[in-house]
Design a binder for these strands. Structure first.
Lengths: 236, 236
DNA sequence: CCAAAAAACGGAGTACACTCATAAATGAGG
DNA sequence: CCTCATTTATGAGTGTACTCCGTTTTTTGG
């Protein structure tokens, strides 16, 4: 069997193992949950040595990131799809977040673990930065919605303000997912809250944009520079 | 030596050990950082057996929560103090968050770990719920500022909206701390961003309050109920 | 086709958080 | 003061994520 300059045997082997590992991890997490699965089990099901596993993912949590990045990627696509059917900014963002939020409702614990590893895991590991790139794309999409809304209202688009608001929206979603798993706080449907949070952030971002109708009384931005000094020093 | 119905010997012993453990953990975390310290070291410095440690804190992360709860408590007091000197809502909230944010800048990694454990740790463990209670107090304080601002603008105070906005503010702070440790995202001073985020959230919360000047064009809240169905089902 | 070099593999070994069976300490009752 | 019951302390033991180095496989070069 001739091979037309394709990937070498080594590469093919690596790819196969990669696939087996991905499948094994994905299945086991789905069956029993991230925390209840051992790396031994994953390596066994993937039919590789216990040590080999760690040549393909630097840690157990990287395996989770590897698997759930794909989920997030898919959810993001689906969200972008749906988004087009919304008729205002808040709805558009909710549509965008919808599929990801829905996944989180179905697989509470593992989704929370994913959020945890995504934001708190060892930086500079492959799958983590992949995941962060997805988050960046999500935020960019949110930013797009906000930009559109601003333009429709005839406001000057300040990309910084919009970027920052997008981060807030992600932060709210992140916390909603975290809370739904640990029952933190006084409960109250966290996902209903999320809609309100998004509405507030959207409204606030647009209200503050230069050229907004009017910046109601107490100026939200103080005049004195970018203000670094009033955060810190405990000793006078 | 007579003893006037005070705590029993047992209680005193327990209290002493508790103190020694707290001090040992606090010192070691400060010296070398949470992740580099082993529970062995802590139990040795506290002069208790390795097993005893876990009678006073259910896990290593509970030790972190135990120690940093006090930091947060102090920061919160300091923040409430400073807050009174602010002349608008955004400044007040930044003052309130200031000390906690400052601590996070000084001890990036451990603060991030604290946030992680606080939000993602095992629910129903003592120090975690203590920490969550502090967060609730922080959010209540933020809510107080917002209520004041709303009243000063002559708006009807919707406590739900205000509660939810307070959660957003905490979410933004939480993520700012998480990011500053892992260098996630494109960087850009996360704490400068935080000020803008707070301004946007405050403005948005007030803008949406019933009785607000006018709810600019695309209605932030859709009319059709509380909207659960448009988040979910992937299959039609 | 063979030999040497390089890369990938794998399982025994390690470190560390946490548990558990046993021992020590304390308090209550006589 | 002594005995017994109950609570608390302890460190050897356990499970598990991860590492390390000898072995095997693959590639390269002649």
């Amino acid at each position: 069997m001739a091979r037309a300059a394709g990937p070498s045997r080594r590469d093919r082997n690596a790819q196969e193992k990669q696939d087996r590992i991905f499948r094994a991890a994905s299945e086991l997490f789905a069956e029993r949950g991230y925390s209840a699965v051992t790396t031994q089990e994953i390596s066994e099901r993937a039919d590789v040595g216990a040590g080999t596993l760690f040549r393909y993912a630097a840690s157990k949590s990287e395996l989770l990131l590897m698997v759930f990045n794909e989920e997030l990627r898919a959810a993001l696509e689906a969200g972008k799809e749906r988004m087009t059917r919304a008729d205002n900014a808040v709805e558009a963002i909710m549509m965008l977040l919808g599929p990801a939020v829905q996944r989180a409702r179905e697989r509470t614990d593992d989704s929370a673990a994913y959020q945890r590893e995504l934001l708190f895991g060892d930086a500079a590991e492959r799958y983590r930065s992949e995941g962060l790139a997805l988050v960046a794309r999500l935020e960019a999409a949110i930013g797009g919605v906000l930009t559109g809304a601003a333009e429709r209202r005839g406001l000057d688009v300040d990309s910084e303000a919009i970027r920052v608001a997008s981060v807030s929206v992600f932060a709210a979603m992140h916390l909603a997912i975290a809370r739904s798993s640990t029952g933190a706080h006084g409960s109250a449907d966290v996902y209903e809250d999320l809609r309100v949070q998004v509405a507030q952030i959207v409204e606030g971002a647009l209200a503050i944009l230069p050229g907004a109708p009017f910046e109601s009384s107490p100026a939200p931005r103080s005049e004195r520079g970018t203000g670094e000094q009033e955060q810190g020093e405990n000793e006078p």
